[in-house]
Computed example of a mutant assay.
Amino acid sequence: MTAPEINRDTFKLNSGFLIPAVALGTWKSSPEDCYNAVKHALNVGYRHIDTARIYLNEASVGKAINDFLKESDDVKREDIFVTTKLCPCDYHDPETAILGSLERLQLDYVDLYLMHHSLAEVSGEGLKPVDEDGFRKHIPFEKLSYVDAYKVVQTFVNKGYTRSVGVCNFNVPKVQRLLEVSEIPPAVVQCEIHPYLPQQDLVDFCKEHGIVVEAFSPLGSTGAPLLNEPILVSVAEKYQVSPACIAISWAIARGTVPLPKSTNDSRIEANLKTIKLSDQDVELINNISKTTTKRYLNSKWRIDVYYSDAEFNPVK
């Protein structure tokens, strides 16, 4: 079967803005590699870049964007969707954190600002504070909760720092809690999602509440282990494309936004060339997780931060 036309959709956020359906992820990209990757991605048509304070490459992302805009005759700042994230060690002072991110990015605003995790971490001990056993050092919920931090983050929309706000690594109960207490609801929830970990309950909940889901590690994280999955290989052969194309296209078919990360020029280009899958092939890929379920990214916490249904008590 010949591959269908390239599909470059956008999704509409509950904030009213459009988000491009494929982003370049920059996690674990060194500053130099990140600059080159972002610059190349923009040159070949990407209009969505995802970074974070904790990635230590915001300055590279910003320089690449600004250099690209200086060289471009027809692309403006408002044409590029930029996401960065609030580090958990900065939950005590989100405003200073976002102003620092904007300075490093050399931007007046970002398009999306995400809370990176649902636990606040201690401040003053680096971006990833850990105890003597190597566990992340967090602040008790009753002293500083994600609800506290989000109430500050949502004010950044009216202050012009960001156009939309959201969260990363949150489960359904925690998103539900934010919907109950927020004035500006999350526009996006970003989590690890791929055929081995489809997180259907989260995707369905977010769709019901008008929230767009972003899928980080859509190829299964470092080394792209999903690319040898027999069903993906079979579907890729049918459409005469790569297994990576199938995994990314499957993410879009579900109404989610994949964030494939690469610093390789040819793979960056290939990851943008998604296709429209048949409903039967989407369902076939959906069924992969019924026999193989795997999460590739887990931080070392003493309690379940992301995915348990337990809610903290009290809630402010």
Rank of each mutant, 00 (worst) to 15 (best):
I288M: 08
D265G: 06
N287E: 12
E214K: 02
E5S: 15
I303L: 14
M115F: 11
D74Y: 10
I246A: 06
H116N: 12
G166W: 03
I275C: 12
A64V: 14
R77P: 10
K63Q: 12
I275P: 06
Y113N: 09
T256Y: 04
K63C: 03
N57Y: 05
H92Y: 13
V175G: 01
W250L: 09
N57A: 07
L107R: 01
L18R: 12
L297E: 04
N264E: 11
D111I: 12
E269M: 05
C168G: 08
V165W: 02
N158Q: 10
Y46T: 01
D133P: 10
Y196T: 06
A37Y: 05
I246M: 06
T162C: 14
H48L: 01
V175W: 00
R254V: 15
A187F: 07
E237D: 13
E269G: 01
S217Y: 00
R163E: 04
V75Q: 10
S308P: 08
R47S: 02
Y35T: 05
H194K: 10
E58R: 08
E71G: 11
A120F: 02
V213Y: 01
H40V: 03
T222C: 11
E192Y: 11
L227V: 15
F68K: 02
F156N: 01
S29R: 01
T291P: 03
F156L: 10
E142V: 10
L297M: 11
V75S: 13
S308Y: 03
D33I: 06
A149H: 03
Y35W: 14
S278V: 11
N36F: 02
T84E: 10
Y150W: 05
A247P: 08
V213K: 00
I285L: 14
I54E: 11
N298V: 15
I275R: 08
A270L: 11
Q154Y: 02
G16L: 06
P185T: 14
S72E: 13
I193A: 12
Y146S: 05
A251E: 00
V212D: 00
T2S: 11
C87F: 12
S30E: 14
R104V: 01
P260V: 04
T26G: 03
K316G: 07
E71C: 09
L107Y: 03
F17Q: 07
I248N: 08
L226Y: 11
L202E: 00
A41D: 05
D79V: 11
V165T: 03
I231N: 04
V110N: 09
N36M: 04
P225W: 14
G25K: 00
N36G: 03
N66P: 10
A224F: 15
D304G: 09
E229L: 14
H48S: 02
D148R: 15
L69M: 10
K12A: 11
I80C: 10
G100T: 07
K63W: 02
I184M: 07
D79F: 12
V61T: 08
E132V: 15
G223C: 14
L272C: 09
S234A: 12
G16F: 08
I193N: 12
L127Y: 05
T222M: 09
A310W: 10
P243M: 13
H40L: 07
H116Y: 13
